[in-house]
Simulated scan of single mutants.
Amino acid sequence: MGSGSWGTHAVEVAGRRVVKRFPPGDGGRAAREWRALTLLARHAPGLAPEPLEAGLGASEPVVVMSRLDGNPLRGAVLGSEQIDALAEAVAALHVALPSGVLDGVPPRPGHQAELIGHLREWARTARPRAGGLVRQGMDAGLAWLAASGLDADGARGVPPVFGPGDGNLANYLWDGSRVRIVDFEESGRSDRAFELAEITEHVGSWVDAPLDVPAFLDRFDLSAAEAARLPRCRRLLALVWLFLLAGDDPDRPRNPPGTAERQAGRLLELLA
């Protein structure tokens, strides 16, 4: 899900260097960012910024990295060349770490069990305040979740991958020939179906210029288990986004009016 998309750090750009400053008690975000950058520099150089220095023990942790050239894909109309490059970068990231290295990486935050726990809490606190299409979507999504078996299923039968944990297309930079990736605050061990759903269901993939989801997903050769898991991950993440968007501050909205209603419609389509 990537709480980074809701603002958790300050970024300074100085020449070819990017300095990310994290708030006190950052929940391990700086450490995850630094771990990802150092591992990717060793095993997939060029795919992400180079790690330059870090102050992880400071009261306000700091991570310094190289600056990548390129334009964020969020809000851009993506042709087949850009979708190819995006899929290539995502696929390369998933398999970047050797299995022995990936085994030592902790699971990413905001994975299945954690999100289901959030949804159960939001069903008690946020659902009663919703109405109209948003409430309809919440009710349908929660009914599906109760019957989905996701609690017990987990990600059994699918191989682990390295995931960035944030599907915001703003973190994927197109330089005219390839896509490279930034922002690894929520990174960790995950699975491919969940990480692909992170991208397809993120608000940044549809609120402006919509990502061609079928074309994007068609670039991946999923196993039977991954293909079966993907729709369930998409529904789960779409439901989470519905609650997040319904809780947008009306005095300081982060998205255009009606975004929550649009998300409710998207979720209902996925559940149909």
Rank of each mutant, 00 (worst) to 15 (best):
M1H: 13
V158L: 07
P61Y: 00
A30T: 07
A225L: 07
V203P: 03
G4Q: 07
V207H: 13
E195D: 15
A48K: 06
F220S: 04
G247F: 02
G131L: 06
Y172G: 03
S190Q: 03
H9A: 15
L150I: 08
T38H: 05
A146F: 04
A48E: 07
A147Q: 14
E186Q: 02
G27Y: 08
R232D: 12
E88F: 01
A155E: 04
L56R: 04
M138S: 04
V240W: 11
W174N: 09
R178L: 04
F216H: 04
V11Y: 00
A209T: 14
R189E: 10
S3I: 15
A246N: 12
P45T: 11
A31L: 14
A92F: 02
T259V: 12
R234E: 15
D103A: 15
P61L: 09
T125G: 00
W122G: 01
L133P: 12
E226F: 05
L245N: 09
S5F: 03
S3G: 13
L52K: 00
R74D: 12
V161R: 02
A152H: 10
A87S: 15
V105P: 00
E88T: 13
A224K: 11
L242E: 10
E12F: 07
S187H: 03
E81R: 15
D84R: 09
S177E: 14
A238E: 05
E195H: 04
E12C: 08
R189A: 14
P98R: 09
A76E: 15
T200V: 15
L242Q: 10
G149F: 11
M1G: 15
E261D: 15
G25I: 06
N171E: 11
G46C: 12
L52N: 01
D249A: 08
M65N: 02
V161S: 09
R219K: 07
L268S: 03
G25E: 13
W206M: 05
G163T: 12
D103C: 03
A36K: 02
P256R: 06
L102T: 09
G79W: 04
A272Q: 14
S80A: 15
A36P: 00
L239M: 13
A147K: 12
R254M: 10
H202I: 11
D183G: 03
L102Y: 05
A10S: 13
A89C: 08
P72C: 01
L119M: 11
G154T: 04
A58E: 14
